[in-house]
Design a protein around this nucleic acid. Structure first.
Length: 571
RNA sequence: GCCCCCGUAGCUUAAUGGAUAAAGCAGGACUCUUCUAAGGUCUUGAUGGGGGUUCGAUUCCCUCCGGGGGUACCA
């Protein structure tokens, strides 16, 4: 619908350039609105309102007969459009028959790599990982819906000095049996203990570095320990991912690039990009107004950015992506600025047609008092704990609300609703703001929440079930009678989905989609609260209303699916 | 010090240059003999301070204040 109106306006203007068309929040400003007159007025030496008036007449002429109910020019120069009920019904019919309503071919199958989740071996997944996982997943879904070929990449944190420290800690205090029983938790305890003891014993830090050097040099004992840690960790992580319903195409992590470290260092030196300084190898980034990037430590060991440079090279060679998105917390902003600067110095980016690298940052999950929850200090909140708590609470509520369900159905609903609440609470917010961890907020199931949207979906589907009319019959309904403001407002809300998905994927913003879905659910609630559907005495109109209910339910489900939120048929 | 992010109602947030700043929670008043009350209806209440750009600024620029994060041998 958006594009149809935009085309009419373009035709009226005799232009081919894009025009801005918005859906005003206040219905008194029309169903759609444009500011073209205010933008063009200055260049044409006219008053905005006069131009708006001229254009509104031209738009009315350019539109098909009976398409607009009204086109109005108002101060300071907006042109507002009201669609006729007929135009709305025709569009509704088109949408009802569309297979993947909301998606588009905009991406032309170009490859986008989305790096997200990126768990660290031997560390429990915390709420920070939860954010990158669900934000990354939603962005990957959005880009897929926009017609991109998306590579979902879990870049494992499985290499680095931290493993030297872990190996050192294991050799000092490790308990094999305990680790076998509860791998990640025990390993994390060792890591935390290492940092505690290192505060008192300075030699530990050095010992950790030495163990990593040995690991990197291929020491057999360290290698075996590292492999064991990794295997056990992945086993545990995959259970969590399965619970979340998250899947990845690639699990290649930092260790994959281990053998390339020397070559990268040599390449950078050969190209005179890197130089020796204080015994280490660094890339000076003064021209980018950035501090120097450390490529190789003075003991010869590699660091994070070195592996990320190798990773980038591998991705560019293997996948030929048009974009790479790094869904990583804001705290790593400097790392990515440096990485992107090095890539530009190497000539990998910054030219016509070369790939676009974007750090999709998000705010931190902070503890009480707004301070960082650090793994090293053993203060982070585990993702599993949050999920368990949400699902348990949801199970208690389902038990009270819907006794008719079987125990297995209640479990499934509790899982969907609990996870839906956690996901929605996070995705509805602008990803940049830091979140202060709060159980009450995370577990809020009322108002603008995941369960509200799921509840709306379940009620819509329930109405269709109660009617006894089959969904396949409803998809064949022609719309000729819908005319109340509640019906038409719901239909118009539905039409917005494609634009919302396009904008959300362009800005990597899940809140745009979440906010839209909430408003869609509000429109649906208003419709069925005010309008008899199954009880409508007019049989033909009942079918049309049911068909509208079905389109609304599908639209809601399509959108929620992009956010990774399930929609149970009953809750 | 320098760099990144944030500052909107009592609280948590929405709004990427548009119109009277939008919600949820909390508070107050209604609403379950009628398609699921995790619902619906009504109601109180806000852009950190100061400049600038613009027909128009929560949004862009400058500056100050407050909070968080980062800042060469962690990732």
């Amino acid at each position: 619908m958006h594009d149809v109106i935009a085309d009419i306006v373009k035709k009226a203007l005799g232009t081919d350039s894009a025009i801005e068309l918005s859906v005003p929040e206040d219905p008194k400003f029309g169903h759609y609105s444009t500011n073209v007159a205010m933008r063009l007025a200055k260049g044409q030496g006219k008053k905005p309102l006069d131009l708006a008036f001229e254009l509104s007449v031209a738009v009315m002429k350019a539109a098909p007969e009976g398409f607009f109910e009204k086109v109005e020019a108002v101060a300071p120069g907006f042109i507002n459009f009201w669609l006729s009920p007929l135009a709305i019904r025709e569009e509704l019919l088109r949408v009802a028959r569309e297979k993947d309503f909301g998606s588009s071919a905009h991406g032309k199958k170009k490859t986008v790599i989305v790096e997200y989740s990126s768990v660290n071996i031997a560390k429990t997944m915390n709420l920070g990982h939860f954010r990158t996982t669900i934000i990354g997943e939603a962005i990957a879904n959005l880009l897929t819906a926009q017609g991109y070929r998306v590579v979902r990449w879990n870049y494992l944190g499985d290499w680095g000095t931290q493993f030297g420290k872990l190996i050192a800690a294991y050799k000092l205090w490790g308990d094999q049996a305990a680790i076998k029983k509860n791998p990640v938790e025990e390993l994390q305890k060792l890591y935390v203990r290492f940092h505690e003891e290192a505060k008192r014993d300075e030699s530990l830090e050095k010992r950790g570095q030495e163990e990593f050097q040995r690991l990197e040099a291929g020491d057999e004992e360290n290698r075996k320990l590292w492999e064991w840690f990794k295997k056990e960790s992945l086993k545990e992580f995959k259970v969590l991912y399965a619970m979340l319903g998250v899947k990845f195409d690639e699990w290649i992590g930092e260790s994959f690039f281990e053998k390339k470290m020397k070559a990268i260092a040599e390449e950078l030196v050969g190209l005179k990009i890197a130089e020796r300084s204080e015994g280490a190898l660094v890339v000076k980034l003064d021209e980018f107004n950035l501090p120097p990037a450390l490529i190789e430590k003075s003991d010869g060991a590699s660091v994070y950015i070195t592996r990320d440079i190798a990773n980038l090279e591998y991705r560019l060679d293997t996948f030929k992506p048009s974009k790479i998105l790094y869904v990583v917390a804001n705290e790593q902003a400097l790392h990515f600025e440096q990485l992107f600067a090095v890539a530009k110095s190497l000539g990998w980016t910054g030219k016509e047609g070369s790939p676009e690298l974007t750090h999709v940052k998000y705010g931190l999950v902070l503890g009480e008092g707004g301070k960082k929850l650090s793994t090293r200090e053993g203060r982070s909140v585990s993702m599993k704990q949050a999920i368990d708590k949400a699902v348990t609470l949801a199970r208690e509520i389902v038990e009270k609300k819907n006794e008719a369900l079987t125990a297995a159905e209640k479990d499934a609903v509790a899982r969907a609703v609990g996870l839906g609440a956690l996901r929605y609470n996070d995705l509805k917010e602008n990803r940049m703001t830091d979140i202060i961890f709060d159980w009450d907020k995370m577990l809020d199931f009322s108002g603008d929440s995941g369960p509200y949207l799921q509840y709306t979906y379940a009620r819509l589907k329930s109405i269709i079930r109660k009617s006894g009319v089959s969904e396949s019959k409803l998809t064949k309904t022609k719309f000729g009678m819908l005319s109340s403001e509640f019906e038409l407002a719901l239909a118009r809300k539905i039409f917005e989905l494609p634009q919302i998905i396009a904008k959300a994927s362009e800005l990597y913003s899940t809140s745009i989609l979440a906010t839209y879905l909430y408003r869609l659910a509000v429109a649906a609630n208003k419709f069925y609260e005010t309008t008899p559907i199954v009880k409508d005495e007019n049989k033909e109109r009942m079918h049309e209303r049911l068909a509208l209910v079905l389109v609304a339910a599908k639209t809601l489900a399509n959108g929620l699916k992009l956010l990774g939120i399930e929609t149970p048929e009953q809750i």
